[in-house]
């Protein structure tokens, strides 16, 4: 690494932020059209994603070049690291929202619908035939479904993610010990396990729809099940893409035991996603 500059690095004007905004806008605009069954929606979404991927390459390319050119001093590095902490904080609250919704629906509103708590009158007057134990739909839905079994795919998926946590840790130690082979092998294994997880998850969804009649329309159980696992699956996918980028940079030998914020950030993110899955496994599948 070249000598550390004393001044805080200030980037020149950059086109990427506004391109990022344009691509996200395109995706969301397309989504708004698509959910209403309007045809051009899909085009906007595809265009948006294409632009977004192009932009990721360009923007992160700039960042990597600046980093390799030694333009970042300790303080800039700190800014990235602290920025990540606060980003993760917002992510945590995102997940807490959905977990909170699950808690509320399973306890508070469930009590009222079945005749307990402050709005117990709801049960007496409106649904005196409705009794329920989780997992359930609601008093107005008649279709039956089978809940997802914890000890099938979900348990296996837990093992997959746990193992991937171990492999990313190997890679991490490999990096620290300047063992590039271990770093690359660990990363490849992690990406493979991540993809395996997503594939199994997709297969599980298909099972749920076809065999168990467990759909988005299966009342609150279906709703919370899909939103929590889906939101998590999205994070795994994003994590795997980021891991792939890190793998590419590892091949190029970008990381040294001193300079590897990108690696550590992505690795930590992967652990975070893994821990969220443990929470999911307990609260969605088991309890």
């Amino acid at each position: 690494m070249s000598q550390t500059p004393s001044n805080y690095f200030l980037p020149d004007p950059s086109p990427w932020p506004i391109v990022a905004v344009a691509s996200v806008f395109s995706i969301l605009f397309g989504a708004a059209l698509a959910v209403n069954g309007l045809f051009p929606g899909g085009i906007f979404i595809v265009l948006g994603f294409a632009l977004f991927s192009y932009l990721l390459f360009s923007w992160f390319g700039d960042v990597v070049r600046e980093n390799m050119a030694g333009l970042y001093n300790e303080r800039v590095d700190s800014s990235f690291r602290q920025g990540m902490i606060w980003f993760i904080t917002s992510e945590v609250f995102f997940f807490l929202t959905f977990f909170g919704a699950l808690w509320y629906l399973r306890n508070v509103s469930a009590d009222w619908l079945t005749g307990k708590g402050y709005l117990a009158g709801t049960h007496e007057v409106l649904y005196n035939q409705f009794f329920s134990v989780w997992p359930r739909t609601g008093p107005g839905l008649k279709e039956e479904f089978t809940p997802m079994k914890a000890w099938g795919v979900p348990a296996f998926n837990t093992i997959v993610l746990l193992t991937s946590g171990a492999t990313i840790t190997w890679a991490h130690w490999g990096l620290k010990a300047e063992n590039r082979k271990l770093l690359i092998r660990g990363l490849i294994a992690t990406i493979f396990l991540g993809l395996l997880f997503v594939t199994l998850q997709a297969w599980e969804y298909q099972e749920a729809y076809q065999q168990l009649n467990l759909t988005l329309k299966s009342g609150v159980y279906g709703s919370t099940f899909y939103i929590l696992t889906g939101f998590h699956g999205m994070h795994v996918t994003v994590g795997a893409i980021m891991l792939a980028a890190i793998l590419g940079r590892s091949f190029k030998g970008h990381f040294t035991p001193e300079n590897h914020f990108a690696f550590e950030a992505v690795a930590w993110y992967w652990h975070f996603v893994d821990v969220v899955w443990l929470g999911l496994f307990i609260f969605v599948y088991m309890l």
Partner: peptide, 10 residues
């Protein structure tokens, strides 16, 4: 009291 769809408030 709010009249909430699907619930009874007393």
């Amino acid at each position: 009291k709010d009249a909430i769809a699907g619930y009874i408030t007393e």
